[in-house]
Simulated scan of single mutants.
Amino acid sequence: MLYFSLADTAKTEHLLALDGADERLKLFKADLLEEYSFEQAIEGCEAVFHTASPVKFIVTDPQTELIDPALRGTMNVLNTCKKTSSVKRVIVTSSMAAVIVRQPPLEPNDVVDESFFSDPSVCMETEYWYPLSKTLAENVAWQFSKDNGMDMVFINPGFIIGPLLQPTLNFSVEMIVDMINGKNPFNSIYYRFVDVRDVALAHVNALETPSANGRYIMDGPSMTIYEIKEIMRELFPDLCVADTKEEGEIKEIIYKVCVEKVKNLGVEFTPLKSSLRDTIISLKEKCLI
């Protein structure tokens, strides 16, 4: 679903409850696939954050479910920004998925930085549809920026965890719930997470720092699923963290990540232990575990 009714309190109530929402928050109806449906929302704005894109790794129709919303949605937002003379800078939420799918595959000694781009042909060959959608969307945004002289900054986070605003699970936090329940979401040994509060700060600083430019990758240190579970058990001894059920061949993409550029933007990374603690507290408060 690419839009929701403003009358749907399950989708809006948590936003309207934010501090200062009565004075400073306006909600608008828009659809990623509807050309110029963002005009009313963007009118008069100096900056636009384009964060919307479906996050799914299992799909039956990748074109409809992922690629069209990501690609056409990005173009619809950017075309409206181009028409709106007040817009000075656009911050686009991309993904590490648009960074790490390459040929030859990344090796343990490779140090990934902002110069790394996923290869769409490799994404297609491997049927990595979500990385394909994010790669294509970022590529067209880069081209649009060059063709139109638009000031555009990209944030490329990995899997995002941390406290939830909404009352329902999102894809990344659901991975934590899966781990608690003994599942291995990507059938991997190693996982990386970044805190939602750090990602939000990077977006704000990308707007407020005049010299901000290009891409900013954000990913946490690599940790094994077993280490993550041990941290959960240490933090919450009463939480029933199930042992991991191994399912077939373990898939791995191991590499190092250089995050100095985003640190120079004024972002310090929240330790994974703190992120996990706050994620689980939030899940408990919202009765999601």
Rank of each mutant, 00 (worst) to 15 (best):
F117W: 14
V173I: 14
K261T: 06
P54I: 02
V112N: 02
L27P: 01
Y216T: 11
V257I: 15
A137Q: 02
S86A: 08
R215A: 07
P108M: 01
K261V: 04
L276W: 02
K88F: 02
A202E: 07
S275L: 07
A21D: 11
K29R: 11
L2K: 00
T279L: 03
L283W: 01
H50A: 12
S188N: 13
L201R: 15
L283T: 09
F269P: 08
K11V: 00
K88D: 05
F154I: 08
V99S: 13
T135A: 10
Y3G: 08
E268S: 15
R277E: 10
R233I: 09
T270C: 15
T74H: 00
D198V: 05
Y191F: 14
V77Y: 07
D195P: 05
T51Y: 00
H203G: 05
G214D: 12
G248C: 12
D113A: 09
M175H: 14
Y191G: 02
T84F: 05
G162K: 07
S121Q: 14
Y216H: 09
E252P: 03
K273D: 04
P163I: 09
V122I: 14
S85T: 10
T279I: 10
K261H: 04
S85W: 01
K83D: 10
V259A: 02
I280F: 01
I250H: 00
L132G: 11
D119P: 01
P69K: 04
E23S: 13
S121E: 14
E252I: 10
Y191D: 05
L169N: 00
D31V: 06
L27V: 04
S275T: 04
V204W: 10
E107Q: 15
V101P: 05
T135W: 13
S282I: 10
T270W: 11
C287E: 14
R233V: 12
Y130E: 06
K82W: 09
C240Y: 00
K134Y: 09
T84V: 07
V99P: 06
E260K: 14
E174A: 07
P157T: 07
I254N: 07
Y226I: 00
F171Y: 14
L265Y: 12
F186G: 11
D22R: 10
M124G: 02
V48Q: 04
L239I: 00
Y3D: 10
A206Y: 03
K88A: 03
V99F: 02
V101Q: 08
E247P: 02
H203Y: 08
